[in-house]
Amino acid sequence: MAVERFPVEASHIMMFARSIGDPNPVYYDEDAAKKTEAGGIIAPPTFAQASSQFDPDAGLRPKIGQPWFGSGKEPTGVQRSGGGGGGTGLHAEQHFEYHRHLRPGDVLTATTKPGKTWEREGRRAGKLMFSESITEYRDQKGELVITARSVGVSTERVVQQD
């Protein structure tokens, strides 16, 4: 993933805070936020993940004019190759290091490098293949503001429920 321009906007922060069920005024009320230690609106700690809205290649966003793998007339708009063992790509871990917190007006870039990969046998989903990626978010001055480490897992089978 590479995001060349992630403008951090107040309305986006408000919608994101609502979606995680967080009523803290520091995420939407400029006057109330000014009176807090933050001194103005800031973004919640997991907001950087919303950079995918600005990633032209984000695979989990429908692209205009392209087939989408969710349902329409049929349960999926894209038949998966390989016969499908029922496996799923899932998010296994997410870690953030904050050099400072994001504010409306910030314009970030994000660059992602691959990290380690490993495998193990899972109890509920067969063989698990893990892969790590490290994303650096930099602000309009080029300063590092957030370092994120993400671990994805692809499972051999659907995760069994017990």
């Binding site: 803290n24 998010h91 290091e97 480490r149």
Partner: peptide, 11 residues
């Protein structure tokens, strides 16, 4: 607000 320096989880 704004006090976290690190936050990481496993799902």
């Amino acid at each position: 607000d704004g006090r976290l320096t690190k936050f990481g989880v496993r799902f």
